[in-house]
């Protein structure tokens, strides 16, 4: 994944999946999957401006056997706000961290 793009999972309110996906698209997000949750991707700047979050660079182990590390952007969500256009459509925004290969 290009570094500038950040992934998130959106929890839509019941029966609002498609409408939420549509609004997210209109806001400029790339909608990758619509299901129980909606997978989206967007540049960091769009995330920050839409949801009032910030990101800080962090490192975590990718594979312990070879001591490989991965760098990713961790979301700081203390001041997260769901914008008015999405308030009636989604309940939660969750930012995904990379997993570790076991």
């Amino acid at each position: 994944m290009p570094q500038s793009l950040i992934s998130a999972e959106i929890q839509p309110l019941p029966n609002q999946e498609k409408q939420a996906a549509l609004v997210l698209q209109r806001l400029g997000f790339l909608v990758l999957y619509v299901g129980t949750t909606i997978s989206i991707q967007a540049p960091r700047s769009l995330r920050e401006s839409t949801f009032n979050v910030s990101f800080k660079e962090e490192k975590k182990t990718a594979m312990a056997e070879i001591k490989s590390e991965q760098t990713y952007l961790r979301a700081v969500t203390d001041k997260l706000i769901i914008p008015q256009t999405l308030e009636s459509l989604i309940s939660e925004v969750m930012f995904i961290e990379p997993p570790e290969f076991f």
Partner: peptide
């Protein structure tokens, strides 16, 4: 997998395989 492991899992699930194997996770 790309940057979102959940999306990769959902992609696999949508293929309706009999089995999904996952050698990764979170501590």
């Amino acid at each position: 997998m790309g940057g979102n492991a959940t999306l990769a899992f959902k992609t696999a699930s949508d293929l309706h395989p009999a089995v999904i194997s996952n050698s990764w996770g979170y501590n």
